[in-house]
Amino acid sequence: MDIGDMRRDFESEGLDRDALNDDPVAQFHHWFEDARQAGILEPNAMSLATTGTDGMPDIRTVLLKYFDQTGFVFYTNYGSRKARELDENPRAALLFPWIGLNRQVRIQGRVEKVSKTESLRYFASRPRGSQIGAWVSEQSKAITSRGLLEQKVAEIRRKFSDGEVPLPSFWGGYRVVPERIEFWQGRPSRLHDRFEYVRQDDGWLIQRLQP
């Protein structure tokens, strides 16, 4: 299969500095709402890139669950591969690929764990099946069969059959505190519009990047 000729021109309106909010989180909120209203499937799906002490980059898709001026929050098992890499190197990159709108957002920053209160609040809002799944999976570890997972599900369902499913001690959230955010708008002939926000002591430096 020859995929070298697979291409399309990005027919979309341009992105000008005057159209950007001075606050990148407010700008992200605007684009996020555009993606949601346009019917983009899972607009909160984001690629999360991490690197441990071995220097090997790692990437996977996770779901953004909350964002505000303090950062962008996702949840996971604290024993997972991503968690181990974040323990070793608490920095990460995020990518939101809103291809249907010819847009993407890239975020880089340091990472910190959210408070237990925040994790508990979100965990309590999850469907019961997802709560049980958090207890069952030793994320990223090898397993010999799916049957073992299903057996563990049955055990956890019995264990918590009489009440609420508590927050596991090994599960919780991370916050990516942005230091750099880029908004990318596809344009014809690959002359895309790119604007980068870089955190400064007194605010954000905004600059246009070449495509």
Results as ranks from 00 to 15, higher is better:
M1K: 12
I3F: 07
G4F: 12
G4Y: 10
D5W: 15
M6F: 13
M6A: 12
R7C: 15
R7A: 15
D9M: 15
S12F: 10
S12I: 03
E13D: 15
G14E: 01
D16S: 15
R17N: 01
R17F: 03
D18H: 10
L20I: 14
L20E: 03
N21V: 10
D22W: 03
V25T: 09
V25Y: 06
A26Q: 08
Q27R: 00
F28W: 07
W31V: 02
W31R: 04
A35M: 10
A38L: 03
A38K: 11
G39W: 00
G39Y: 02
L41T: 08
P43M: 07
N44E: 08
S47L: 07
T50D: 12
T50G: 10
T51P: 00
D54I: 02
G55P: 11
M56R: 11
P57F: 01
I59C: 14
R60Y: 07
V62K: 03
V62D: 07
V62R: 05
V62M: 12
L64W: 03
K65H: 05
Q69Y: 05
Q69V: 12
F72T: 03
V73K: 13
F74Q: 07
F74D: 03
Y75R: 03
T76D: 08
N77A: 10
G79S: 02
S80P: 00
R81Y: 09
E88S: 09
P90F: 01
A92V: 07
L94S: 01
F96S: 05
W98F: 05
W98I: 02
G100I: 12
L101S: 08
R103N: 08
Q104T: 03
R106H: 13
I107G: 04
I107P: 00
I107E: 08
R110K: 15
V111R: 09
S115I: 00
K116R: 15
E118Y: 00
L120G: 15
F123Q: 03
A124S: 13
P127W: 01
R128G: 03
S130M: 10
S130K: 08
S130F: 04
Q131D: 12
I132F: 04
A134T: 06
A134S: 13
W135P: 02
W135Q: 05
E138G: 03
K141R: 15
A142N: 07
G147C: 05
G147Q: 13
L149D: 05
L149R: 09
Q151S: 14
K152G: 08
E155D: 09
R158V: 11
R158W: 06
D162P: 06
G163T: 07
G163Q: 11
E164G: 01
V165R: 02
P166W: 02
L167I: 00
S169I: 13
W171R: 13
G173M: 08
Y174S: 05
R175V: 12
V176R: 03
V177F: 02
P178E: 04
E179A: 11
E179Y: 05
E179L: 13
I181Y: 08
W184T: 01
G186I: 03
G186R: 12
P188D: 06
R190N: 15
L191Y: 02
H192A: 04
D193V: 00
R194S: 11
E196H: 05
R199K: 13
Q200R: 11
Q200N: 06
G203R: 14
L205T: 06
I206W: 12
Q207I: 15
R208L: 14
Q210E: 11
P211D: 12
